[in-house]
């Protein structure tokens, strides 16, 4: 078994969502918390990709940003090579900013409009003092540009002169500039055209092969995740409901939510699409603010019983590292 690069243990991130005072009701004073990430655990082996999927608002991005320490974790640990980094403020740390990098979702918002491409890509090099002379820095910037499939002539341009796909390549070059080991791709392709998405995915996979990178690939495009990930984790309202080797999860989905999610992937077949009914899911996503006890999915699950509304299910191992958080996994699986 390969070495584990990053391990997240019991990670928790709540956001304050206001408070209210009630004069004639109990409790008198109530605070609201948005449970963006609620006791999440997973680990990523070196050189592999973990795909994190889930619908909008389920906390995927918060997981990524908490690992990067853009948000301070409210509980739990983020172990990078065995060392807890969750509580080292990002502003006072030089070691791990060099090792963990990020590719952003929106290539239009993630590049400073007042900086040239060379400044953007060269920033990490400058901050970490990786090169001594200006010429060396310039060489490195050109090398990075070519690595991601851009021309070296592009370096003195400004972001507004590029297309979305090109900007995303610049964002990848920026992430690579400090020779990181681990890259969080936060919806790195969802803002791009389908044809460009394929290019960027192939670029990411090529770089992984060449440089031995490890990815946390956050996305809501299930087919893309299947293509790129070794492991897949499915999130629902701040919790992981299913995690395991990608093919295992896709071929043998064991959580009602995963099943519904996979059944809703659109196929390019109008006859099939017309007949399709999404099984296992009803209603809308619940509010993540002060959630009820029990399984988060209980209100939408057609199999839900009393126990689902009382007790939060733990992740149970079904073998081969495939884990599911559902009280009725065995029953559901045996039914079919």
């Amino acid at each position: 078994m390969a070495e584990i690069l990053l391990e997240v243990k019991d990670l928790k991130k709540y956001f304050k969502a206001g408070s209210k005072i009630q004069l004639f009701k109990k409790p008198f004073y109530e605070k609201y918390y948005l449970h963006a990430v609620d006791h999440i655990s997973f680990s990523i082996e070196k050189g592999t990709t973990l795909g994190l999927v889930g619908e909008s608002g389920c906390g995927k991005t918060t997981v990524g940003r908490t690992i990067l320490r853009l948000y301070e974790a409210d509980g739990g640990e983020v172990l990078y090579e065995g060392k807890d980094i969750a509580h080292i403020p990002i502003s006072s740390d030089k070691t791990y900013t060099k090792k963990i990098q990020m590719v952003f979702q929106d290539p239009y918002a993630s590049l400073d409009p007042r900086c040239t491409i060379a400044d953007i890509i060269g920033e990490g090099i400058e901050v970490h003092g990786l090169y001594k002379t200006k010429k060396e820095r310039e060489e490195r910037v050109c090398e990075l540009l070519e690595m991601v499939g851009l021309n070296r002539e592009h370096r003195n341009r400004f972001p507004h002169e590029f297309s979305g796909g090109q900007r995303q390549r610049v964002g990848i070059a920026r992430a690579l500039s400090v020779n990181p080991e681990f890259i969080v791709c936060d919806e790195a392709i969802s803002a791009l055209d389908v044809s460009i998405q394929a290019q960027i995915i192939n670029l990411l996979m090529r770089l992984q092969k060449e440089m031995g990178l490890t990815y946390l690939f956050i996305a809501h495009d299930l087919s893309m995740v299947r293509h790129i990930s070794d492991q897949t984790a499915v999130m629902y309202l701040g919790t992981i409901v299913e995690i395991g080797p990608t093919e295992e999860v896709y071929q043998n989905p064991s959580h009602p939510y995963t099943r519904g999610l996979l059944a809703s992937v659109p196929l390019p077949d109008p006859d099939y699409e017309a007949k399709r009914t999404v099984r296992g899911m009803k209603g809308e996503i619940n509010s993540p603010i002060n959630p009820k006890p029990g399984c988060r999915f209980a209100d939408r699950c057609e199999f839900a019983c009393d126990i689902c509304r009382e007790k939060m299910p733990e992740l149970k191992d079904l073998g081969k590292g495939h884990k599911v958080a559902c009280h009725f996994t065995e029953k559901l699986n045996s039914k079919e």
Binding site: K98, D106, A109, D112, H128, R174
Partner: peptide
């Protein structure tokens, strides 16, 4: 995000 990116780079 462009500020976050610099922050992540250790600025």
């Amino acid at each position: 995000d462009f500020v976050n990116a610099s922050r992540i780079l250790g600025a």
